[in-house]
Design a protein around this nucleic acid. Structure first.
Lengths: 151, 151
DNA sequence: CCAATAAAGGACTAAATTATCTTTTTTTGT
DNA sequence: ACAAAAAAAGATAATTTAGTCCTTTATTGG
């Protein structure tokens, strides 16, 4: 449903929402280590996300990635669209591009409501709101317990 | 969520459930045309499905593929397991292999019920039952209206 | 100004998936 | 027996996705 790249992107941006701001920037290397994601691949990906105004960055010593106000008002759906495009996510479960409510495939009505729900969730909440929820609920972005490192 | 191969496999088997039996066999070429799936790729795939006892076949003129009794009692889940394995389907939406109800990722509780429901559906119904539903509801396996060709 | 640091950019490599091609084996009808 | 038809089998090719490496550019602190 999502490419590795899109998964990495979502996790990285939620990570930055939690642990960065304009003065506390995080290097690509640190993000890749904390999230256990291949470093050069992530670097490339962050570049793309920068181009799409989903993350901000600055060069040089003390440089790194962070989220500014605008970045925090984007949605998870924006990330998916930027990295994977919409087609992959919207596609019929059996790959039929004519599948719809009026011309359904055999599993359409099992699959469709959930996709709609997930999509609505991803479109309706900003990254900032998502990050708030993560803090409240204590959900997890990585295998490692890296919270300790940030306290 | 599913590979092209798994999608083709499901559609082909449901197709055979509807349009074949031990004496009315269907050639790989016809299936590929009706479902609009690459022919040599499908031939290979049907071979694998034969090996896994999900379809039956016979060689020579008048030969082709069909479903026997045993094949009709398999499930869509069996197809997915055979073609893709379980990992891909069960994997966390964000790719975290530690994600679970007790250690959830940020989208776990949006995504998890959906997966459970689909999986239950795919495990609980036989191909034969699925085919019955398709007949009743008139759902669709292809872009083309190939029903006419079978009447 | 200079050395160190970090992102940006571009070229390249690897792996997996998807798709094709060719040959062999089995079966059928004549 | 033989020719035609179809699946089985195995090798190969193309495409996409994932991942790496190297060079350039910008920024900071001394």
């Amino acid at each position: 449903m999502l490419s590795n790249a899109a998964q990495y992107a979502i996790r990285s941006i939620l990570y930055l929402a939690l642990y960065s701001n304009a003065t506390q920037r995080v290097r690509a290397k640190k993000i890749s280590q904390d999230l256990e994601v291949p470093q050069p691949f992530l670097a490339k990906l962050l570049q793309r996300l920068g181009g799409a105004d989903l993350v901000s960055s600055s060069k040089g010593p003390t440089g790194g990635f962070y989220l500014n106000k605008a970045n925090r008002n984007k949605t998870v759906w924006d990330i998916i669209v930027t990295v994977d495009g919409t087609e992959k996510f919207n596609q019929c479960f059996l790959g039929l591009h004519t599948c719809s409510d009026t011309n359904p495939c055999p599993v359409h009505f099992s699959v469709s409501p959930f996709k709609q729900a997930i999509k609505k969730d991803f479109k309706g909440k900003t990254i900032a709101q998502f990050a708030e929820e993560i803090k409240k609920r204590g959900t997890v972005l990585s295998l490692k317990d890296f919270d300790a490192l940030h306290e």
